[in-house]
Nucleic acid binder design. Structure first.
Lengths: 301, 301
DNA sequence: TTTCGAATCGTTCAATTCGTGCATTCGGTC
DNA sequence: GACCGAATGCACGAATTGAACGATTCGAAA
């Protein structure tokens, strides 16, 4: 999974000299590891983060395994939406992935990519489907494609620091939509959390078990449908109490949580969108962009 | 209690060549013992300490594919199954992906990886869950993880030739399981098809539309549950007729298709597993796996 | 215990990367 | 324009890497 690249490869990909790249690594601008013999090894997500932070482009993206043409044009938000809509409704996987990667590389935050591009496009596809302008299979295909785009985004973000605080989450029983919870996971990873989505259709019981077993510092729950409101509220509040006793914050979001339902709910914070969630997550755990330079004078001989 | 590893295993785990690892051991960078005959034996904690000291990024023992239980990283089928089961039930994304990619790189066909490793493990996880040996959230997480592993496999396979014949497929209305159809897609891509999964919960109507619009040469349909058998058979046969008139073959598979149901069904071929499907797909469109090496353009002086 | 396939040994070799020095370019200041 | 510090790209010998190779050792079945 974690693929390593040599300084030469990355330099070629970015379009700079190998010397400069080595200097950047040594200055700590790009986190890297060293082999026993002192050769630098760079990971894809670290490289992408650097490109994003420094506003670099990609001269030869294919060298580090990215689709060609990635990172050469900076798409505007509206045109990105339009193109993504076109690509997703026609099932064009490669274009959809490249578009999202372009946005990511150009510096747009993951939360914004999700909130301002992916979500609206997905919304629009749902509308088109309901109007009959899109066949069912086109909508389903777009849904599938959306999952893949998010997967690609997760690759670009990386798995987060191994020592980061743990966050888990998912959707509740009866709620089959995984896109929101997957997006939440990626946003949290981008914010420095060790986030893992548990998937969909999770009973309250098992979420309690998850808290007891894994001791997360954060749990996110996406709620798009509620069957029995009273039982939902009761179960939810029990879950919140369990979480509190384990020092775990609860983030909720989703269309089903109307204002009056929220009235009776206990939770740490409610988020209307992923930017809110990111802001909250960073408040607890701001990601340190400072990376320690490689200063490892090797043992000679 | 102390677990020993061979240089080959450790090298594979941390992503360097066996030669380098042996040199490091000989230089004293990693403490190791030798057998009477001179074979190196590395202890887990020594390896971990080395990783923590030298390459600061891989401090997590799980990340490097060294679960403390088994000593075999070489993808023997059984040990791969056992390790994957361990990784998936504990939610270890990195190890799961690495295991599958190792199998792929070692030359195992995608169909075999799916049939002989992923599917049995997934089956086993379902059993463990039903027995109560696994929490619901662990099963759901494993399910989610399984999807990601297949994503990674699809990346490794590539998108297939742009001029390949088109194949589309998915699961029918009322059938929420996407794993099988996603695996089918990857197998077909590996076999040279331009395959696209339309996802799950597809009504018969829209599949007809898809055939009429996109003119695929192949459609696969995964059936794990059937509600109304009679309507199913009727609808299916209509779909098959449509497909036939457009020159599109229909592949079916899935537990729900018992022998007596198949009796009344019309289709091009029925597959018990993905190897069967691959064999059929290659009969129509044979293709050798082309491994494209990463060729970096030479620097001119 | 003996046997035998698989794994590991130690070594060599071409290719790559290391660290360093140096000339050049860039942007700001006098 | 002249100056300067910082960053960049290139060149060099020394060191590292990964992939070969035949010889040796391991471990389990006979």
């Amino acid at each position: 999974m974690s693929q390593f690249f040599s300084p030469k490869e990355v330099a070629l990909a970015i379009g700079v000299s190998e010397s400069s790249l080595k200097r950047w690594v040594d200055k700590g601008l790009i986190p890297a590891e060293k082999t026993g013999g002192g050769h630098r090894r760079l990971q894809l997500d670290a490289v992408l983060r650097f490109i994003r932070d420094e506003g670099k482009g990609l001269a030869n993206p294919e060298i580090i395994g990215l689709p060609a043409e990635t990172g050469k044009i900076v798409p505007a938000e509206e045109s990105a939406q339009a193109e993504l809509l076109q690509a997703m409704s026609s099932g064009n996987e490669a274009t959809a992935k490249r578009l999202i990667l372009d946005l990511f590389i150009s510096g747009m935050s993951v939360a914004n990519i999700c909130d301002l591009v992916i979500a609206p496009v997905f919304q629009r596809i749902g509308d088109l489907w309901r109007c009959g302008d899109l066949e069912v299979y086109q909508e389903r295909r777009a849904c599938e494609l959306c999952g893949r785009v998010i997967h690609e985004l997760r690759r670009a973000v990386g798995s987060g620091p191994v020592d980061g605080p743990l966050a888990i989450g998912g959707t509740l029983d009866g709620d089959p939509y995984t896109l929101a919870t997957n997006m939440a996971e990626v946003v949290l990873r981008d914010a420095g959390w060790r986030a893992t989505s548990l998937g969909h259709m999770l009973p309250f019981d098992t979420l309690r078990k998850a808290i007891e077993n894994d001791h997360p510092h954060l749990m996110w729950i996406s709620v798009t449908t509620i069957r029995d409101t009273e039982r939902f509220i009761a179960n939810f509040n029990v879950l919140f109490d369990t979480a509190t006793s384990f020092g775990c914050a609860i983030i909720v979001g989703g269309q089903a949580l109307t204002a009056d339902i929220r009235q009776s709910l206990r939770y740490t914070t409610f988020c209307d969108n992923l930017r809110h969630m990111e802001a909250f997550a960073r408040t607890i755990r701001p990601r340190d962009r400072v990376t320690t330079p490689i200063t490892s004078p090797e043992v000679k001989f």
